[in-house]
């Protein structure tokens, strides 16, 4: 990990296309400005972490997937759309 010290109104550039600027500091809160190409995804770390954890928790082993789907369906179907058969 690279650790840098920056002041307000200073910034840094990543890979030529992404620049991060320190806009303001208020106590333990730091306001950042990020300029990046539209194709670069910028997300709060904690949201990414939450989705990552949930992806891992939701994974079902191949052999059990269809069976779990069946038991889930019996649970959700009354609330879901009726079977048109």
């Amino acid at each position: 990990m690279l650790v840098l010290t920056r002041r307000v109104d200073e910034g840094l550039n990543i890979g030529g296309e992404i620049s991060v600027r320190i806009l303001a500091i208020d106590g333990d809160r730091v306001k950042l400005g990020v300029v990046a190409p539209r194709t670069v995804s910028i997300l709060r770390d904690e949201l990414c972490q939450q989705v990552r954890n949930e992806n891992t928790a939701a994974a079902i082993p191949a052999g059990q997937r269809a069976a779990v789907a069946r038991s889930l369906k019996s649970l959700v179907l009354p609330a879901a759309e009726p079977d048109a058969s």
Partner: peptide, 17 residues
């Protein structure tokens, strides 16, 4: 949207309430 079964093991025998 991805469903997370009650148990991450997702056993078919366990109702996923």
């Amino acid at each position: 949207a991805i469903i997370t079964p009650a148990s991450s093991l997702g056993s078919a025998a366990e109702p996923t309430t």
